[in-house]
Amino acid sequence: MRYMKWTFWALVALIIGGFLHYTLPQHDIVRVVNTYQERQDLGDWTSIFWSTPDDQSGTLTNRDVQFISTIRTNGKPMVYRNEDTGWHWPPYFKFDTASLLAEAEDLKSSPENPKWAVITHYGWRNELLSIFPNAVSIKAVAGPDVRIIPWVNIVILTVMVLILLTIRAMWLQFKERSIDPVLEDVEEAWDDVEEAADAAGSRAKGVLGRLRDWMLGRR
């Protein structure tokens, strides 16, 4: 049971951690090398990793998606999709896909004369499943060594921890005031039942013993 308990909580932590890692904003220092548009199929299960624009038909199986090709500071490529989130989840309320594309176009550069930018995005990149993170904003920075402090993530995670600690404190207080006394009463009642059963068993043994002695003529 102990291993099952820890396995359960490990799975819960893994699911919550994965959800937060996918949803919360992340920041990459990159150099933009290209922007393009490509038609993507939306019919399989990976459609959950694509945005659902407000003007998209529920029966649409493919659509054109804008992409931003970049090179990260370590020299590895990273491709971002550029889609509006609208009023859907996650709540980034992004409606400026066209403006973001223009900003990315303006930041294109070559290795000889690089322009560095910070792209704020959410989501994951998986080449096997053709999953792309969604760029939310792009902003020019002074160089590749700029340090970005994720204030939004810090605030959100701090609030979540405070909420969890408050819920835990409320639960412990409720348990101490309402559940523990009931469990103590149940335990005391069970002890009384066991004592009564033991006493009844002792009396029954005494009666049976006297009956046996009478039948054997010991008395």
Rank of each mutant, 00 (worst) to 15 (best):
84 D>E: 13
122 Y>K: 06
213 D>V: 02
103 E>M: 07
56 Q>R: 13
168 R>E: 12
51 S>E: 15
69 S>F: 00
212 R>E: 09
3 Y>A: 14
139 K>Q: 09
157 L>T: 12
181 P>S: 10
5 K>V: 14
49 F>Y: 15
138 I>R: 04
159 V>G: 05
194 E>C: 06
34 N>Y: 04
102 A>M: 05
157 L>C: 09
15 I>M: 09
95 F>H: 12
165 L>V: 11
57 S>H: 07
123 G>F: 03
149 I>S: 02
41 D>K: 07
122 Y>S: 06
61 T>W: 05
57 S>T: 11
155 V>F: 14
24 L>M: 12
143 G>E: 05
106 D>G: 04
124 W>A: 03
99 S>V: 08
203 R>A: 10
147 R>Q: 15
57 S>D: 14
115 K>N: 09
65 V>E: 04
16 I>C: 08
17 G>M: 04
43 G>H: 10
128 L>D: 10
168 R>Y: 09
66 Q>E: 10
189 A>F: 04
77 P>R: 05
153 N>K: 04
13 A>T: 11
179 I>F: 13
125 R>C: 00
198 D>H: 07
124 W>M: 03
72 R>S: 06
121 H>N: 08
53 P>E: 08
43 G>K: 11
206 G>S: 11
148 I>F: 09
139 K>M: 08
193 V>T: 10
39 R>H: 03
79 V>T: 15
58 G>F: 02
63 R>Y: 04
73 T>Q: 07
126 N>T: 02
100 L>N: 11
75 G>I: 07
29 I>N: 01
42 L>D: 04
106 D>E: 12
186 V>A: 11
22 Y>G: 01
194 E>D: 14
197 A>S: 08
102 A>Y: 03
148 I>G: 03
93 F>T: 07
73 T>F: 02
53 P>C: 05
35 T>V: 15
191 D>R: 15
155 V>P: 01
45 W>M: 05
195 E>N: 09
90 P>L: 08
136 V>Q: 11
202 S>F: 09
118 V>E: 14
97 T>D: 12
71 I>P: 01
139 K>T: 12
24 L>E: 02
20 L>D: 05
177 R>P: 02
156 I>F: 13
44 D>S: 14
211 L>F: 05
197 A>L: 10
192 D>C: 00
141 V>S: 08
38 E>N: 13
163 I>H: 03
143 G>A: 06
130 S>D: 15
64 D>R: 04
155 V>K: 11
